[in-house]
Structure formats: C-alpha cells, structure tokens
C-alpha cells in the first residue's frame, strides 16, 4: 500500500512541479545576489542571506529559510490536501476502499507519502542550493582552516565539513518534521471534504493564523503550541556549541501535531460515509 502511494506520488507532474519551483526560487535569489552583489544588511532579509555572498556554503541554510515561511507550506498544503479529497473528487475513493485494505492503512500510506514529499522537497532544496551557492559565491575564507566545506558558525567557531554535513542533515530532518506536521493537518482536512482545494486552503488558513498570533503579546500563553513558533529553531543548530533547547521543544510540538492531526483524520475517516 505504501509503495503504491509512493509510486503514485512520484508519477504526479504537479509534485515534480512543486519541487522544481521550490528549488528555482532560491536559485533566482542567488543569481540576483550574485549579479547585483547587493546582499541585505545583517538582520534584514532572510536568515543567513547577508552572509551568503562571502561563503556559498551558507546558501542552503538561507534557501531553506527563504522557502520555509510561504512556499514550502503552500506545496505541502496542496499535496496533503489532495491526499484523500483528491481521490474523492475524482470518484476513486470508494473504489479504493473496495479493496481489502483498512482505512487506517490507507491513511498511514497517505501520511508516509506526504512525509516522503516533504523530505524530498527539503533535500532537493538543500542540494540544489548548495550547488548554486558554491558555483556563484564559492567557498568562504574558512576553507583555509576547515578545508573546502568549512564555514563560520554563528558563534564564530569554524565548523569542519563533517560538522557542517551533520548539522545540515539535522536541519533537513527537523524541517521535514515541521512540514510533516502541516501535512498531517492537511490530511485531516482532506478527510473532511471532497474538495482538495478547500482542504489546502484550510491548511494555509491554519498556518496564517499561527503566523498572525505569533508576535502578539496577548497570545503569549499559547505561543508554545503554535507550529510556526518553532519553524526557525533549526538556526540554533548553526551555533557552537549547539543550543538544543528550541530544537527539542520544536520536535515535541511537531510530533504532537502529527499524532493529534493523524488521530483526528483516523477518527473522522474510519466511520465516514464514502459516497464518491
């Protein structure tokens, strides 16, 4: 079942279009930075963007920060919102359920498929932006110390290529988890409606509300539970020593969303009358 869903996901052109667009947006920013040599001042623009012109190896971090707030959630909303509602809108869902497959297994396969999508999306953005960053901006001066591949951490300590690879892998895993939480919410919405667009818009509305509440002092009591609160915690992986607290809290909250949203999807879908 999982293999079927994964093959189905990989055969969809819109999935590949999402990945291409996610990789193209940071590449466009990199080209503009390289052509104009106008990097934003520290603290302005996207995270790490001010530092990429002096070390192209920081561009994957900057690229992930660029796609994280808007483009990545949009693509995850589209794919996860389509997971069940897409089948229902094309009339395939009832035929799918005629097979001797439990609804829980079907939902699990759908969630794994969404997870594979977000993981591959983050991996593709990381790899393409590393190549684009190094090609356009080169290795930084830290190559003299850490060898080609070393970068300066936020704390000033030079990270070796091995350390950089480890921290980048941790970033990829963390962001994939954050997006999987959004995907799980999308899966739940997808079981509520037969319209993939409505489900996707529901996810985006959830993300927007979370982003709106985030800076409000009045929402301080629930800030910890907002998913977007923890999206930038991975930046602490680029300090030395690593500051794990925010990452740890982020993992806890995102896992909580995955469990609760997937549970809600199961609770709703398990007894739902499927008519289309």
């Amino acid at each position: 079942m999982i293999g079927v869903e994964l093959r189905l996901m990989l055969r969809r052109r819109r999935v590949w279009l999402c990945w291409v667009l996610l990789c193209a947006i940071p590449a466009l920013v990199a080209v503009l930075l390289a052509v104009t040599n106008l990097a934003p001042a520290p603290g302005q623009g996207g995270a790490f963007l001010s530092a990429v012109t002096s070390d192209g190896q920081l561009f994957p971090a900057a690229a992930l920060a660029l796609v994280l707030p808007v483009f990545l959630p949009i693509t995850v909303a589209l794919v996860s919102g389509d997971a069940v509602a897409g089948e229902a809108s094309t009339g395939m869902l009832r035929y799918l359920l005629v097979r001797p497959v439990g609804r829980l297994r079907l939902l699990t396969a759908k969630l794994v498929s969404v997870g594979a999508f977000v993981l591959l999306a983050v991996v593709f953005v990381t790899i393409t932006s590393y190549i684009v960053g190094v090609l356009l901006f080169g290795f930084g001066a830290d190559a003299a110390v850490g060898g080609a591949g070393g970068i300066t951490s936020l704390s000033g300590v030079v990270l070796t290529p091995l350390q950089l690879a480890g921290r980048t892998a941790a970033t990829v895993g963390y962001l994939a988890l954050c997006m999987l939480a959004i995907g799980a919410i999308g899966l739940f919405f997808s079981t509520l409606t037969d319209s993939p667009l409505a489900a996707a818009l529901g996810v985006l509305a959830f993300v927007v509300v979370s982003a709106i509440l985030l800076p409000l002092d009045a929402a301080a009591g629930i800030r910890f539970y907002l998913p977007t609160t923890h999206w930038l915690a991975w930046i602490d992986l680029f300090r030395d020593p690593i500051l794990w607290r925010a990452v740890r809290e982020g993992v806890f909250v995102q896992l909580g969303y995955i469990v609760v949203a997937f549970g809600a999807a199961w609770a709703n879908f398990a007894t739902k009358d499927v008519t289309s």
Partner: peptide, 27 residues
C-alpha cells in the same frame, strides 16, 4: 542570540582584564 529571525549572535567574552566581542552580523 540576536537578529529578527535569530540568525545572528553577539558574544561577549570577559577574560581577566581583557574583553572581546564577537559579532556574527559584522563578521
């Protein structure tokens, strides 16, 4: 841990009579 997105750092080291300030934004 500074920066609008938390993507910078300003570290103050106090070592005896000497003091150092590392500013990632200013490199």
């Amino acid at each position: 841990l500074t920066g609008a997105l938390g993507d910078s750092e300003r570290d103050t080291y106090h070592l005896g009579a000497a003091e150092y300030v590392w500013d990632f934004g200013g490199n």
